[in-house]
């Protein structure tokens, strides 16, 4: 599978032949009534995009990271765009893919959080809090619903957190197709090529993740973010890192930089830019 957001959900050319670009000139839903066409086209590509989100479980929680960049095609267009979002008290949702769809998702998540707080006394210890699993289930339904309307939200989401009742770490993925899965380490986009092998070296199973310390997990994530910055041209040095722990709650740093880089390998790479052989 090609993990470039532009290719998400597209049939591969090798399998189905080249994409018929005439379809891309089809009218959109708004023009439906005025055009003589008998089909509609909704979103077929993301416009402003965020790259990978990566996350791993450890003994008592989850570490999740995403950089703070929104690209317009290959142009690194907006800096300081946060893509990790706190929902409720023990959940962080990481969002990659189309940034305007992400912003739409945020208003939905805000509403979800507020509706849960209605008539739900926050000061008592007897609160029916939003759990990561509820938020994930809701988002997964939303994503699948939208893809079934042939009008997907062009994102891949990682929901991370701890269940405030049981203290169990939670980590699950859902994307624009409504596909969902859980794993001790999850990455979206380019991260699933570059970060996952590194993270699986740390913890290849739930059992191994349950042995992982926060420091190990954090280092794994930081190293992966470094590798991603080396090799993913849509990534930035500056990123956000959140730790959700069952005992200490959410620790969120939106201003981390990739450190201890070595670009020595770059001198051996040829074939792009202004470099001459």
């Amino acid at each position: 599978m090609n993990h470039d957001p532009y290719s998400w959900g597209r049939p591969s050319d090798a399998m189905y032949g080249q994409y018929n670009n005439a379809i891309a000139n089809a009218p959109n839903t708004l023009e439906h009534h005025s055009s003589g066409s008998n089909f509609n086209e909704n979103t077929t590509r993301p416009i402003v995009t965020g790259t990978s989100v990566i996350a791993i479980k450890y003994k008592t929680g989850v570490v999740i990271a995403a950089d703070n960049l929104a690209s317009y095609g290959s142009l690194l267009r907006f800096q300081g765009i946060e893509r990790l979002h706190k929902v409720g008290k023990t959940t962080v949702v990481g969002i990659s893919g189309d940034v305007s769809d992400m912003q739409h998702l945020l208003t939905i998540l805000d509403q979800l959080e507020m509706e849960n707080n209605y008539d739900n006394d926050e000061y008592s210890d007897n609160v029916d809090e939003l759990q990561p699993s509820y938020i994930f289930e809701y988002l997964a339904n939303l994503m699948y619903h939208r893809r079934s309307k042939m009008n997907p939200l062009w994102n891949a989401l990682i929901v991370s957190g701890v269940d405030s009742k049981t203290g169990k770490p939670f980590l699950e993925y859902v994307n624009l197709l409504g596909v969902k899965y859980a794993s001790p380490s999850i990455a979206t986009g380019f991260g699933s090529h570059l970060a996952i092998p590194l993270l699986r070296k740390l913890a290849d199973s739930e059992e191994e993740a349950a042995e992982l310390t926060l420091e190990q997990a954090k280092k794994g994530i930081k190293d992966s973010m470094k590798v991603l910055f080396y090799r993913d041209t849509r990534s930035s040095k500056n990123y956000s890192l959140a730790v959700i722990d069952k005992d200490t709650g959410i620790a969120y740093d939106n201003n981390v930089d990739v450190e201890d880089m070595s670009w020595k390998f770059a001198k051996d790479i040829t074939g792009y830019g202004t470099q001459r052989v």
């Binding site: 507020m114 707080n117 209605y118 008539d119 006394d121 008592s124």
Partner: peptide, 12 residues
């Protein structure tokens, strides 16, 4: 006791 709350929240 403590249930059947009368004060409500309209918005945050």
């Amino acid at each position: 006791p403590g249930k059947n709350r009368k004060i409500q929240t309209i918005d945050r």
